[in-house]
Simulated scan of single mutants.
Amino acid sequence: MTQTFIQTFILLSLVTDPFGNVPLFVAALSKVHKTRRWKVVVRECLIAYVVLLLFMFFGRHLLSAMQLSEISLRIGGSVILFLIAMRMVFPQPGGLFGDDGSDGEPFIVPLAIPAIAGPSALATVLLFSSDTKMEVMVHIGALTAVALVWLAVFLSAERLQKVLGPRVMTAFERLMGLILTAAAVEMFMAGVRDFLKSL
């Protein structure tokens, strides 16, 4: 159980990439008054948490309604993870999710979705759908722990960027991208193995 919790925690930490999203949060909140920034951070983290929780609980029902198998979701999710990881290792203009050019206080987009609860995170929590109560509780616990990490990181985002500097932040993001690449490949191979067994 502890191993499952740790594995889920690490995977969710990688796919939501809080440290890699620090520059995005700093930029998005730069035009928000300082007294409101913490409220916006808490709100966006809460929205992302609820969205991921809903996908975790109703993942299998969604798959059934769309007539998708868990194997196809695993392989498709691994491809998305791999693409996100490539953009982390080899940054592109506009960041991981592009720049919508909007001004003012951010609401849901781009911070809650897709910065935190992006396609890779949604695909990952869909795979956590489980029949046993114990596994469900472990996954919810891991998601809650990761949400607390988001809060801690994003509430101190400006300080982190100033203390560590842009080079260290970039290096850390690329390291996270490298680890996520390996996780994506592992997920892809597991999907292919399951597919071959089903033939």
Rank of each mutant, 00 (worst) to 15 (best):
A28N: 09
P110K: 05
V22G: 06
P166G: 13
V163L: 14
G104R: 05
I80K: 07
I179A: 13
F58H: 00
V153L: 02
I116R: 06
L53K: 07
F172D: 00
V149K: 03
G101H: 02
F82G: 11
E173P: 02
Y49P: 01
P23T: 11
R43H: 12
R87P: 01
L54I: 12
L126A: 13
G77R: 00
F97Y: 14
A27K: 13
Q7L: 11
T144R: 04
L54R: 04
W38M: 13
F58M: 09
E173T: 15
L127P: 01
V185R: 02
T4P: 00
L11A: 12
L73H: 04
V40S: 09
L148W: 02
T144A: 15
S64V: 04
P91M: 03
A147L: 01
L160G: 09
F107S: 11
P18W: 04
Q3A: 14
L68S: 04
A182M: 11
F5Y: 02
K39C: 00
F107I: 12
A182L: 14
F128Y: 09
D100C: 01
L63S: 07
F128G: 06
A85P: 08
V79F: 01
A48P: 10
T16E: 00
L196N: 03
S198F: 02
M1C: 05
S198T: 08
M176N: 08
K39P: 00
S69L: 03
M189P: 00
F97H: 15
V153P: 08
T2L: 14
L178N: 02
P106L: 05
G76Y: 03
G118W: 03
T181C: 10
F57Y: 07
A65G: 01
F188I: 01
V185A: 11
V26Y: 06
C45R: 02
I116N: 08
L111T: 10
R159A: 14
Q7K: 13
Q161V: 13
G98I: 04
P110A: 07
F97G: 07
L81D: 04
L29S: 01
L52A: 04
A28C: 10
L81A: 10
E105P: 09
L175E: 03
I75L: 07
R60G: 08
T170K: 05
A28P: 08
L175Q: 06
I113Q: 12
I47W: 08
L83D: 05
P106K: 10
P166F: 07
L155R: 12
L148I: 13
L54A: 14
A145M: 10
R174G: 08
I179F: 14
K197G: 01
N21H: 09
M1W: 09
M56C: 10
S198E: 10
H61W: 14
V50C: 08
S72W: 05
V22Q: 11
S102W: 02
I47H: 05
S72Y: 10
D194P: 00
V185P: 04
L54P: 00
M187C: 04
V109S: 14
L122D: 09
F128K: 05
V192M: 06
E70P: 01
E70V: 02
I47E: 06
L53V: 12
M86L: 15
L73N: 05
L199Y: 01
L12W: 03
I179P: 02
D103R: 13
G118P: 04
F90W: 13
G59Q: 03
V42L: 13
I71V: 15
